[in-house]
């Protein structure tokens, strides 16, 4: 693989070069200390050195709110809404967020392949960037390295004074055509260390989860959890949604829209007649964690958590999914080493 070198102060130049070819989306500073993926208007506003963006790039393929169809109440007819292909370069994506996109690709392809997601997903080009794990990341424990280039068209590895640039696909090579970058000879630096770990190899997590249904950790976290749903909404592999009809003031038509939903919310499992199938916060927390570490994982052999740390970083109650898993691991090992 040819490795090129991009000096830090030429990043904007690379962004501008890419913008000539397709629209480019990249992290931008937002609020006091947050970052959000937005379309680049000013190449120098794109940020490469950031801990995590609030919403992963899933928001471009599976938008927070999306019209599924529009309807005409007079004619009683409906027509399907447009779902244009992304057809853009996503610049500065962390490896766990691309891992999450691959998981969503699976969810929206399996069973009944869904046009909305799959159509929007077309033409997406990914330029990755390495990152230095902060106090929340634990991707290493779910098998996603900060330098993991899998699925990227171009990958940028951070050095002190710039980035190693690798084109990994013909598309990536094509995008770099026309920008002069010197070769990089020295090899890659050591990867950053994770501060957060799951204390068990990923391959064994399945066994841990099998014995964790009745664990006390669910009740314990439920005492602190306020059921706000934030942990679902920020998770790059959450794909649940709800659907609602909106009607215009003239009452002549409207749209059927979907928006992100979450299994931590009480009304998620409520049905007419007042039955709530996951009534307690403990049951809901367990469902969330099992969805990340067991249910789909049993089917695919992969954790459905990519270790981005968002749910923990954003939980005002400070509930940490790593701590939950580690408590399960601890209890599993206690049981496992105690002869019966």
């Amino acid at each position: 693989m040819v490795q090129l070198f991009l000096e830090s102060d030429r990043v904007a130049e690379l962004v501008a070069h890419l913008m000539k070819q397709k629209s480019v989306f990249a992290p931008h500073a937002k609020g006091r200390k947050s970052f959000a993926f937005e379309e680049v208007k000013d190449p120098s506003a794109a940020v490469l050195d950031y801990p995590r963006v609030m919403h992963s790039i899933r928001k471009f393929f599976f938008p927070p709110q999306e019209t599924l169809m529009t309807f005409d109440l007079k004619e009683n007819t409906c027509s399907v809404a447009e779902t244009p292909a992304a057809d853009a370069i996503f610049f500065g994506v962390h490896s766990y967020d691309l891992g999450a996109v691959h998981r969503l690709d699976y969810n929206f392809s399996e069973g009944n392949p869904e046009k909305n997601y799959i159509a929007r997903r077309q033409g997406a080009v990914f330029v990755g960037v390495s990152y230095k794990p902060d106090e929340f990341h634990f991707s290493g424990s779910v098998g996603i390295d900060p330098y993991d280039t899998a699925g990227f068209d171009i990958f940028l590895t951070k050095l002190l004074d710039g980035y190693i640039v690798e084109a990994l696909t013909p598309v990536g090579e094509g995008l770099l055509d026309g920008i002069e970058l010197p070769a990089h000879e020295a090899g890659k630096p050591a990867r950053g260390h994770f501060q957060q770990h799951i204390y068990l190899p990923q391959a064994k997590l399945g066994q841990v989860m099998d014995g964790s249904y009745q664990n006390e950790v669910w009740d314990d976290t439920a005492k602190k959890c306020v059921g706000c749903g934030t942990c679902n909404l920020v998770c790059p592999t959450c794909y649940c949604f709800t659907v609602e009809d909106e009607v215009n003031v003239q009452v002549t038509g409207g749209s059927r829209d979907r928006r992100w939903d979450g299994c931590m919310l009480r009304d998620f499992s409520a049905v007419a007649g007042g039955e709530v199938f996951r009534e307690t916060l403990a049951e809901r927390q367990r469902h969330r964690v099992f969805r990340k570490f067991k249910y789909i994982s049993d089917e695919t052999g992969q954790p459905w958590c990519v270790g981005c740390g968002r749910c923990t970083a954003c939980c005002t109650a400070g509930i940490s999914i790593v701590n939950i898993i580690n408590r399960l691991v601890g209890d599993y090992e206690k049981v496992a080493v105690t002869p019966i």
Partner: peptide
């Protein structure tokens, strides 16, 4: 029936707790 946080997160707002404010949104 859900909390203000849901709408807040849908809009990708930075949480005001980050600025040391008391926000009742979660409940």
């Amino acid at each position: 029936e859900h909390s203000v946080c849901v709408e807040c997160k849908l809009k990708e707002n930075e949480c005001v707790f980050e600025r040391g404010m008391i926000c009742l949104g979660p409940v």
